[in-house]
Design a protein around this nucleic acid. Structure first.
Lengths: 225, 225
DNA sequence: CGACTCATTGACGTAGCTCAAGGTATGTGG
DNA sequence: CCACATACCTTGAGCTACGTCAATGAGTCG
């Protein structure tokens, strides 16, 4: 039974060879470079060979929400035939150097029609993304910011860029942007976890030193059974 | 360019004849009856012929969030091959008397493999649902509860069960459950809109009498261009 | 008419926001 | 290798939106 994940990896890894046989162009990105800027229409799909990208949504009042991270073996976004206003508020940025394969929407839809496994895999990826979003909008919304934070640390300790459990590579600002709270509030809740000897805050990353105590704070919806 | 919708209708209406040729059973529901209870695994898919269902998520502290409404010509949920913990917190209830076709997950996946149009339509429906959820978790989260409410009324005036613009068939409790706020807070914000002569609150429904003034309060992300 | 559900309003407490001042790692150029 | 700049983190004080608790009113139905 799956819990939500913010960090996606290897969802489509098995299709790499297949993708190479299909019409595409290779595109590499430097750290900090945009895969999509704000207002840019989502006209194509990236398959990530290596590196990590972050998807953010910009609110008209200047707030920026981090939605998800996409690493090797994943595609983003997913092709469809409608166009949604909110897509104009999405930006995707390389967190590290990246190698990708770039497909047009049409080419990708064509692949979905021809390759059943790819189609099923795409549905599963959509389901996984919906799961994350439902978790945020229907569950986390009711939790206090302290519980939200504990849940986030727990989920990242299960699925994180570092690969190391107990090491969360996020700044306080990142955390605030994921949880749609202020940096100050994130800092205060982290201070509480530090005072309770559950984490050690470092510069740009956080060390979990008492996983059990952390889990005890998490909401039931969050915990891996 | 599409704005979010809470109320889904006619997404799959064109497939009704096709669905009838596929293995299914007819199931009808009384008002208030469950299509799914809490903890019940999502082992099949419903196509709604008539009536309306509401999907809710239950938080462990007793809060109940209304996620979406599903009316004639829609299917819910979508088949996939994973199983997510949060699915156990989903309940779907008939708001009115309903007629449905019920498919097993396997049968539905088989149809997706065989019918390209259905597959494309399913992807579009997923995209539309993701759009709603992104809107909630990345945009509405930053708005004050007053703006949230205005946005909701605007969106429902574009897509609502009644079909009549200017008529919103929701109780204050429903509104609070959609916006994850308390009934009291929803009532206070409605009182403000009433005092400003933008709405007339009735029992179990709300009348919008000044659509322009309402739109002036809505966030940009919400408004149909 | 009584019972029920839904809506209104007040009093009060607090979580989380804003504004603000400082502290501490990391990187850069002289 | 030190001086300095920059990014990141910490902490305090005050404000307010929203939650909680509670009492009352107003439609609807048997």
């Amino acid at each position: 039974m799956l819990i939500p994940r913010y960090f996606f990896a290897n969802t489509f890894a098995g299709f790499y060879e297949y993708f190479l046989t299909q019409p595409h162009i290779r595109r590499n990105f430097q750290k900090e470079e945009y895969l999509w800027r704000l207002d840019e229409p989502l006209t194509h799909v990236y398959y990530v060979i290596s590196g990590v990208a972050v998807a953010t949504l910009e609110h008209e009042d200047g707030f920026r929400k981090i939605s998800s991270f996409h690493s090797s073996g994943t595609i983003f976004p997913v092709s469809h035939q409608s166009s949604f206003k909110i897509e104009q508020s999405i930006a995707v940025t390389a967190v590290s150097e990246m190698e990708t394969l770039c497909f047009t929407n049409e080419a990708f839809l064509q692949m979905l029609c021809e390759n059943r496994q790819l189609m099923l895999c795409t549905l599963n990826w959509y389901a996984s993304y919906v799961n994350l979003l439902l978790y945020e909008s229907a569950h986390q919304d009711y939790n206090s910011s302290f519980i939200k934070l504990c849940n986030l640390l727990y989920l990242f300790s299960h699925n994180s860029p570092s690969g190391q459990e107990g090491r969360i590579d996020l700044t306080q600002e990142n955390i605030a942007q994921i949880l749609t709270m202020t940096r100050v509030n994130a800092a205060r809740n982290l201070a509480r976890l530090r005072d309770e000897k559950i984490i050690i805050p470092h510069r740009r990353w956080i060390e979990i030193i008492d996983q059990q105590a952390l889990e005890a704070y998490c909401s039931l919806e969050t915990l891996q059974p």
